[in-house]
């Protein structure tokens, strides 16, 4: 076990844990953002640089600070390590810089992007970005590429996190897409026109942090904040069958895997569940999906009734927590 101090908070974790996961054990506001790291995908991380933190003390044995900011998602903790994230102006400044880099060539097409409302890059720029741009140059664009009837690829939106490549490598049997080219001309693609199609290919949609890979069967159907997410399951011979249905009325508009609070898929699902089971009768409903209160999705859907504060105060804490009830003035 290793004990570290993260933003002034002590936490004890297994040896070999990354700084990011140690921070996630603390939870809340101190956790660095992550755009490329993805716990279920081996080898992911280290690329986007938004999780940079400052190590002010390397370890109890060797207390020297690390000379540069480090990517918290791939740097293992050492016993006695002291790390600064939100407490370090240098880190916040660097992060602002990285966010700017991610945005300079990103199209401003959120109004027509299916990912809008559940986009990690939107959230990141809201938290760490600036409202203006200093980039006067023309934005980089790529030729459109068709990768089949199920998945829509918008390369212009891609931030090259490599998650979809790891996904195809690790949970499908034959990878047909990858990162082609080099530098800022690097792109996700199949090189020769090819269809990404196998039983689990749809998962690349869920792991994509931006709108580069979206569900073609949901394309332009609705804005995510108008849909109502519910947990559901079915008996599936190929996967766990545990999904989230994104409904409008009783129409199932979209099916995705369930994700944890860091946007990571808990259990990957098969294409049959994702693309073919679009009837309510296909599913057994488990209950409403809990969406973070800060999300635009819950802002529209779980509008709280105006409740007498006294009533909330009388409820058991478990209930108020479960229902995200907060007292509001009458």
């Amino acid at each position: 076990m290793a004990k570290i101090t993260f933003d002034g908070i002590e936490v004890e974790v297994e040896d070999g844990t990354t700084i990011l996961n140690a921070a996630r054990k603390i939870g809340g506001k101190v956790v660095p953002p992550a755009m490329c790291y993805y716990t279920p995908l081996k080898g992911s991380g280290g690329k986007c640089r938004v999780c940079l933190v400052k190590v002010t003390q390397g370890s109890a044995k060797d207390p020297r600070p690390m000379p540069k900011l480090v990517a918290s998602c791939v740097t293992p903790v050492q016993d006695g390590m002291v790390v600064e994230n939100t407490l370090s102006p240098q880190v916040l400044e660097a992060r602002k810089g990285v966010v700017e880099m991610l945005l300079i060539n990103h199209p401003l097409d959120c109004p027509v992007c299916d990912q809008a409302g559940e986009c990690d890059l939107q959230n990141l720029s809201y938290e760490h970005g600036t409202s203006g741009t200093r980039y006067e140059e023309e934005r980089r664009t790529f030729d459109r590429q068709d990768i089949g009837p199920l998945i829509q690829l918008h390369m212009n939106r891609c931030i090259l996190c490599y998650r979809c490549v790891y996904t195809a490598d690790q949970i499908t049997d034959k990878r047909v897409h990858g990162v082609l080219g080099r530098g800022d001309a690097a792109e996700i693609g199949t090189y020769i026109e090819n269809v990404i199609d196998n039983d689990f290919s749809g998962n690349v949609i869920d792991v994509c942090p931006v709108g580069a890979l979206t569900d073609k069967t949901f394309r332009f159907k609705n804005r995510v904040w108008f849909t109502k997410p519910v947990d559901a399951h079915r008996d599936c011979p190929k996967c766990s069958g545990k999904v989230v249905l994104w409904n409008r009325g009783s129409d199932v508009l979209r099916v995705t895997a369930r994700k944890n609070e860091y946007g990571e898929v808990v259990e990957f699902i098969c294409n049959e569940c994702r693309f073919e089971k679009k009837e309510m009768s296909d599913w057994i409903i488990d209950g409403p999906r809990h969406i973070a209160r800060a999300s635009v999705i819950s802002a529209n859907h779980y509008e709280l009734p105006v409740v007498n504060p006294q009533i909330i105060a009388d409820l058991p804490e478990s209930t108020t927590k479960e229902l995200h009830l907060i007292p509001r003035p009458i």
Binding site: K174, V176, G178, V179, G181, Y191, I192
Partner: peptide, 27 residues
């Protein structure tokens, strides 16, 4: 050509995309 790259993949027992990724990286 893509056909030549496919042949290289066959010789090395790897997926063609692994050759495309490499061939497009090196100038």
């Amino acid at each position: 050509s893509p056909e030549v790259q496919d042949k290289v993949a066959e010789i090395l027992d790897i997926q063609p995309i692994e050759v495309y990724e490499v061939a497009t990286f090196y100038t």
